[in-house]
Nucleic acid binder design. Sequence first.
DNA 1: CGCCGTTTTGAGCCTAGTCAATGTACGTGG
DNA 2: CCACGTACATTGACTAGGCTCAAAACGGCG
Lengths: 221, 221
Amino acid sequence: MLGHTAAATRIAKIPTTAGLRSALAAGMQMTLSKGEELFAQGDEAEYFYEVVSGAIRSYKLLSDGRRQIDAFHLRGDIFGLEAGREHRFSAEAVGDVQVVAYRRSRLSAIIEEDAAFRDRIMTATLRNLQRAQDHMLLLGRKTAQEKLATFLLDMAERLSDDEAHFDLPMQRSDIADHLGLTIETVSRTLTQFTRSGLIRLTPAGRSIGLCNRMALKSLDA
Amino acid sequence: MLGHTAAATRIAKIPTTAGLRSALAAGMQMTLSKGEELFAQGDEAEYFYEVVSGAIRSYKLLSDGRRQIDAFHLRGDIFGLEAGREHRFSAEAVGDVQVVAYRRSRLSAIIEEDAAFRDRIMTATLRNLQRAQDHMLLLGRKTAQEKLATFLLDMAERLSDDEAHFDLPMQRSDIADHLGLTIETVSRTLTQFTRSGLIRLTPAGRSIGLCNRMALKSLDA
DNA sequence: CGCCGTTTTGAGCCTAGTCAATGTACGTGG
DNA sequence: CCACGTACATTGACTAGGCTCAAAACGGCG
């Protein structure tokens, strides 16, 4: 039904470098290559993560394979912290990725001792919630054009310095499963944007230039 | 375009009773009647809230009036806590509601001193995030039938003791704006469920009995 | 009893999905 | 260096699920 592929391989959770954030909030740095799975829905939530470089997609699946990517996590984002014992969604590397893993069992100790780290966790969690709320509005109420416009502006803000040009780390099927569309609709809408002079696409389709941010903003509703 | 009505009136934020949770986590109890607004998107986020009884809808609007209700908050739910200074969504009473308001400015003090309350806040926030993630899957990838099946099972779990019979606090337009559908589709799908013997609807359409939870579960995907 | 808000039902349409084919970039090995 | 294979993206023709517009039915309440 949907463009879901991702034959991800499980990665051994072995730290490559030991990064130190603070005495207690020690994190293990790890590297994942394209498509590798960080954790799967149902896995014990022993760690939570911070992205150092690259992009992580976190997603849920329906029994028949339909996929919803609820977020792309980029540099600085913290994710994978759970209220319960198990991860409620899966997470994979979109391209090559570096993350820092924090032990959840140490969380209460960290929170008790390190006020700054506690604030970061709380703020990051609240920001994830905010993003989720914005995204529910997009999924439930925006048209395909509006969805793509919102997505492009968001990616420009998060990926580029000049807000005008950036390289998408993910492929069309990821975008489709994030926006609740099909790859065909994503492709068609981007072509339409190109023809209208809103954006400029490189042949490979991964590099994007925003030519008319005003028009995109107005499509964003 | 959508079934959005809600001519909500602003409520004066005056405590009716003073409820005490713990020495520091003092909350003001307040009562709202049907349709009253607790706060609006853009308001300063001076308080966050816990539902004592009734239901709160929290939602976002697009410029043309399209509405997405991202959550219904029922007894025990905590909501309205923000990372920034402003509320990122609006909140209204679905019916008559009692809530407890906590001052956000006291939050850091509370967190510092009261470990149990801190855990409740953190857990509540993480649960809100989990609910949001589940709901994104619903909005992005489920059919109308699946959406309604999921919704009914969720409401049964949260509203009824026997998980078989309950009264919906909200009207069709609320359900529609929560599930990313129109009121017509909600109504048609419920009629269809009734004809298939999955549920039983009282004339008013607000009281619902689940006759075949198995079948609903399988629709839930 | 009659009004008003809400829900239900009906008919037709449109946006996005499905199915299928073609095009393009890139890596591999002869 | 080029032929080939694979994965990804684009385009086209057609379909369908859910939306729109419209009207009728229903329930609650003054």
